[in-house]
Amino acid sequence: MKDTVMHPEPATVVDHQSKRMLELIGLRKSFGANQVLKGVDLSMNQGEVVSIIGASGSGKSTLLRCINWLETPDKGSTIMVDGRQVGHDDPARASRRDLARRRTEIGMVFQHFNLFPNMTAIENVMEAPLAHGRGTKPEIRALAEELLARVGLSERMTHHPSQLSGGQQQRVAIARALAMKPKLMLFDEVTSALDPELVDEVLKVMKGLAEDGMTMLFVTHEMAFAEDVSDRIIFMADGAILEEGPPSEVLRKPRHDRTRSFLSRAMRGM
């Protein structure tokens, strides 16, 4: 009792910093004979923002998609989210029902948005909480309105995806992923399919999320953005992590030649 009165702040900060939100142990993934991930170990603390960079084919998207089992990891891979395993070391023993439940803790935003075209923006956001019984319809509607306001789309709630720009669609997709109050957010090249003038509005929303303390893992080609928001940058090559560290090191003082040559191409004009 005395302690908490004397040191309330440091205690909570330490706790917040140390909580493991994601842990990958020996993550392997093969497509036939082609091994795309060659035993990746990675951990993220709560509130941490990590960007994965690397050439196409380096396995970075596959890594992201293995975390929520959109791709089934190879036998022997372990994925922990918030201290509990997602799926099973042996994919044959992973229960579909359990996977569905764990996936609600992991928000995912896709390169091509993948909004449900037959639903309005707000219906897209409401669908998952409704399906999982996360409250009454009015409560969920209020939550969806709040999330759409947060991504700057209060005026577009009853529009269908076909009536929205790419940037607007992607912001709806972010709100949709947030609606389940995920513990971890995965972003798979979410600005790659956007016209250049629409990229910033999406990046701004993601930066806001990062500042609010969301644990976020990006696969991105936006080097300036990665440098701006990330606590840590991971450079992947040939299905393995080649280099990782704070942006100031990986992006500005890379240790490996491959990182250097990738960056010299990717950061042209920065």
């Binding site: 569905a100 949709r176 389940m180």
Partner: peptide, 24 residues
């Protein structure tokens, strides 16, 4: 991508079939 969005949100099969897949 629709199936992936459904899977990623952990949406139930029958509900998604009725509300998302069949309408499309």
């Amino acid at each position: 991508g629709q199936h992936e969005a459904i899977a990623a949100a952990g949406l139930p099969w029958f509900r998604s079939l009725r509300r998302i897949i069949l309408p499309q």
